[in-house]
Amino acid sequence: MADAKTNRIGLTLADYQGGKSTLCAGCGHNAISERLLNTMFELGIQPERVAKLSGIGCSSKSPAYFMSRAHSFNTVHGRMPSVATGALLANRTLIALGVSGDGDTASIGIGQFVHLVRRNLPLVYVIEDNGVYGLTKGQFSATADVGSKLKTGVVNELPPIDTCLLAIELGATFVGRSFSGDKRQLSAMLKAAVSHRGTAVLDVISPCVAFNDHEGSTKSFAYTKDHDEPLHELSFVPVFEDIGVEYNAGTTVDVRLHDGSHLQLHKLEESYDPRQKLQAVQRILEAQVRGEVLTGVLYVDPAAPTFLDRLGMVETPLATLPANEVRPPRTALDEVMRSLG
């Protein structure tokens, strides 16, 4: 790189900035926005190629706070997946980034989430997960743990929906869980997710400082830090860099991603291989029993075809096909009319 302050396409970090956040000071979502912005900068992704999509809620406001040079669509509650699907149908060359929350995904939007994942739509789907509805002042969401307590003393009695477990079962091809407070892990995971082709679901525990960061909450900073159980240390080697250090195959799993970059998982848990679906499911279920916040890349399948691959579309974005390619000639209409006479 010619200048340390510019990335490989000659842009500065300022080119990836967004508007000023209106979320609470210390909100986990702001940290995630920061990681997203840095990820795009460090990967040298042209901001104009990115489409940011979101639903409704604190999480879904956050696309306004990073990458103003990328188009963005803040849609309706729980329906970001369908809008993202449509956007990618119209323009398959977009790099789609969906930002959602636990309410937006696991409650009102679970139907669309399920089908987006099932289709393996190429998109990074970040769930900014704090276990509560922030904008409506602190009601439980469907990812709240049994026994977690609101400030008002109300205790959650229903079991949480594990969005990662669900995503693996339904066909997501990149599934990870992280913590907004773990800068290093989240950065590597985001870079790998952006380099992956397929649905990448990242459930990022992102404490709500206003309504769910107190004693008794299982989504607080303190609780998450105490119970964080990283599966492995992650490192990411982008396609434009050489793999510097050779790791022992016995202690490192190297996953070559779609674009040629590498995700390296340095094993803290000896036997864990995130390419094994059954093992992933078993380990997540074990973590639930043990009360661990299991973080890391839980599952990855870098080779599965995406929804867009299956549609047989032309390479050019449908949105910008010239008129003569989308309006058949007069002779075609004549032929149809003759068949109906």
Binding site: T75, S82, G86, A90, L94
Partner: peptide, 13 residues
């Protein structure tokens, strides 16, 4: 929703 996304992104949806 897909029509909205596609229309926003420029398709005739």
């Amino acid at each position: 929703g897909m029509v909205m996304g596609a229309g926003w992104a420029g398709a005739r949806a």
